[in-house]
Design a protein around this nucleic acid. Structure first.
Lengths: 342, 342
DNA sequence: ATGAAAGCGCTAACAG
DNA sequence: CTGTTAGCGCTTTCAT
């Protein structure tokens, strides 16, 4: 069923039907009523393609995240989707598995489908890729550190400071043998976290130990594997800082399998504060990120860009830096016990 | 840039360019080469809308799931997306929050966008809604029990049998005071699980206790709340069967907060076997579902329907029943200890 | 093997 | 306020 059919049944021209749908204010109440009646009665829906062909606007955004089995990303995605939905946009969720190749492939389909904009979460895409998208008229917003460090609007947290804070907490708990396990992705974020970790040690006058810095898949399994390496070391670390709660979960599992106790024999610090981090035994001390808010802000930013572009006014570069804070639970020992240690 | 431009630069007609793209076998090698050259050089991409206007095929499927923060659904989604992706389809992930209203809204946008098919996971949609979609030419496949129990192709597991098996295990462990916490959604699935639970008790000659059957949100928080109620009962249950691992997590948390020990003082049985269920302390005994495979099979089924529809051959109703099995870990006590109990 | 031209369903400028 | 009509970019007959 098409607009012509509706026009015929309503005894008007297709233009009038179209107007009823797009500029109802320009059509006589009586005809409007009649046309609307027929439309509802027949359940007519304008053809999406024909519409797009004219408008070249899809009311669709893309959302690229590395891994959907990591609740941290899901939280972000959920925040973004909420906003998009509320504003009448549909979201295309793309799981990149942390592979640039997959990202590029997704970007291509997204461009094909003429989406209005895209949110890149911890993407490995280069400046060049971003340029390409913008050339195709697609708005781009970043969440978290991205490789293509171009001047796009971005929502992020200060990973360097967050890691510094986390490691400092470990230090305050009396630890000196502090290892760090970081995920292969997100690349840039983890780089900053490493700097924070190293700076904290440096300021505490602790020499850095290459064996204490391990890169692994950013998954529970990755954490497990990395922890095994650490636990097998001649001089085992007494505290492990991980760049994600998922990694921390794996670490905890490995420590349990090794019959060591947390936090007495070894402390574990997470990062993200996903829902399940306080279900672990012991409850995980971690860096709390405003994940949902990150997604929210990112989507808002993107929609702003899209709509301001429609109005022709270029948007100035914008950067939103969100706050992270330490969530102190049980896995790093209690501050009250510091005295016991010394 | 459009097909006309390519045609001009290649000194051919638009028809030829179109043919190069769609029926390359019908165009002379030399011209084909030349046109392809220009296309690549200019990075030309056919307009998605114009294409759709002719084909009325979008290579897109929709995937409705109740909750993206439940890893069980995410696993299913991932399985489906894998298949879809591999076959060149894009997936529209829709999070329904277990609300029919949201489901209907999503269905409407999906229809608008002329997607080729949709996978309904534990949907609350009625037969009528499904009819509507099919009328609009959208293929429908179900995963899990759905409300609209229409004759659509479906992938499911036998929830009744699974619950029966789970409760039986609890029985074998010597339990008699067995409670059940079930989620508000998925509705039909949980209904079947209740039947399995009641049947198992019946066969064991245990009278059913209305206080022992609790409905709550299908989340960690829901499990916590429900467990609190149970623990506050005059005659507290000594075993709790939950219809999802997420609920079980909340239950475990509540039990810990009440300073009770699992499984000695109270046993917990989960359902789904999501990745994190063996990170809990104690490791969760649960009903293992082939989640990824469910998604996989669902997507394959859907694509079959879509493509067979294209070939005009109607597909017979198909039902795929997958196997669930008990994953015995620590949270329900050890079988070896049954003797101790008696 | 290629081109001309008729649509696909809709929107919007233009004319009345 | 409403109708006529020319596109939007592409595919596909039907000729040649």
């Amino acid at each position: 069923m098409n607009i012509k059919e509706i026009a015929r049944k309503a005894n008007v021209s297709v233009a009038t039907v179209s107007r009823v749908l797009n500029h109802p204010e320009n059509v006589a109440p009586k005809t409007k009523e009649r046309v609307l009646g027929i439309i509802n009665e027949l359940g007519y829906k304008p053809n999406w393609f024909a519409r797009g062909l004219n408008f070249n606007k899809t009311n669709t955004i893309g959302l690229l995240i590395p891994n959907i089995l990591n609740p941290a990303y899901v939280e972000i995605a959920k925040g973004a989707e909420d906003v998009a939905n509320r504003k009448g946009y549909t979201t295309l969720l793309c799981i990149t598995e942390g592979e640039v190749k997959k990202e590029r492939k997704y970007i291509q389909t997204l461009i094909d489908r003429r989406i209005d904009g895209v949110i890149l979460v911890s993407s490995l895409l280069e400046d060049e890729d971003v340029k390409e998208m913008k050339k195709q008229g697609i708005a781009v917003v970043l969440i978290g550190e991205n490789k293509g460090n171009s001047k796009e609007p971005i929502v992020r947290i200060d990973c360097y400071a967050a890691a510094f804070m986390a490691v400092n907490h470990l230090l305050e708990c009396g630890h000196t043998q502090i290892a760090m396990i970081y995920g292969r992705v997100p690349e840039m974020e983890n780089k900053n976290k490493i700097e924070g970790y190293e700076q904290a040690l440096l300021e505490a006058g602790i020499l850095k130990n290459e064996d204490y810095l391990i890169k692994e898949e950013n998954t529970i399994e990755g954490g497990y594997v990395a922890a095994r390496k650490l636990l097998g070391l001649w001089k085992m670390p007494r505290a492990i800082f991980t760049t994600s709660d998922l990694l921390a979960f794996g670490v905890i599992d490995a420590i349990r399998d090794a019959d060591l106790t947390i936090p007495d024999e070894i402390a574990v610090m997470g990062f993200d504060n996903i829902r399940m981090s306080n279900l672990m035994e012991p409850k995980l001390t971690t860096v709390a990120l405003p994940l949902h808010r990150m997604g929210l802000s990112g989507a808002r930013l993107l929609l702003d860009v899209i709509e301001s572009k429609n109005d022709g006014e270029m948007m100035a570069m914008r950067e939103i830096v969100l706050q992270s804070k330490l969530k102190i639970r049980k896995s790093c020992g209690h501050k009250e016990r510091i005295s016991e240690i010394f």
